[in-house]
Simulated scan of single mutants.
Amino acid sequence: MNKRIKQLALLVISASALAFVGCDSGQAQMGPKETNVLGIVKYSQADYSAVPTTSFAVSTDELYSRRNYSGDRVDLLWGLITLKDY
């Protein structure tokens, strides 16, 4: 009987830990706004900073027309090519 109570308590604690720990669907205010994969691909969310002159910049409005810009920026090959959405 005592062994079953311990197993049940362990199961309840484990289930509650899984339920309350995890992803918040991007709602965290202090969450990262940048992803970098060894410099090959760097994604910056809502980054309206200027593109360096050493980079070949391509804007999304040059590729297709749109009205709602996100401000996102993707740097490829250590900043050699920059895709910007602003």
Rank of each mutant, 00 (worst) to 15 (best):
L10G: 11
A46E: 14
Y64K: 13
Y86I: 05
L11K: 00
T54I: 05
A15Y: 01
V51C: 07
A28W: 05
D75F: 03
W78A: 04
R67Q: 15
S14M: 08
I5Y: 10
V51G: 02
G22S: 12
L80R: 06
K6V: 13
A46N: 14
L80S: 03
T53I: 10
A57M: 07
L11Y: 00
S65F: 12
S59W: 07
I13R: 00
I5F: 12
N36S: 10
Y43R: 08
R73A: 05
G26L: 10
D75P: 02
L18T: 04
F20M: 14
A17K: 00
K33S: 05
V41Y: 12
Q7W: 03
L76T: 02
P32I: 06
G79H: 05
G79N: 05
A9R: 02
G22D: 11
R4Y: 11
A19I: 06
V58W: 01
I13G: 02
V74D: 02
Y43N: 12
K6S: 09
A15F: 03
D47W: 02
A57V: 05
L83Y: 12
K3S: 11
S49F: 01
A46W: 02
A28E: 11
K84A: 05
L11C: 02
D24H: 13
D72F: 07
T53K: 14
V21Y: 14
L10Y: 01
L83T: 04
S55W: 05
Q29K: 12
K84G: 01
Y64I: 10
R4A: 10
S25V: 08
Y43L: 15
V37M: 13
V21R: 06
S16Q: 05
N36G: 08
R66F: 15
D85F: 10
T35C: 03
Y64C: 06
G31A: 14
Y64G: 07
S70H: 06
L18G: 04
V51S: 07
A15L: 10
W78V: 04
D61I: 07
S70A: 11
G39E: 12
K42I: 14
R4P: 00
A15R: 00
M30N: 13
D24W: 07
I13V: 15
L10N: 07
I40F: 15
D72H: 11
N36T: 06
T53H: 08
L76M: 03
Y43H: 13
R67S: 15
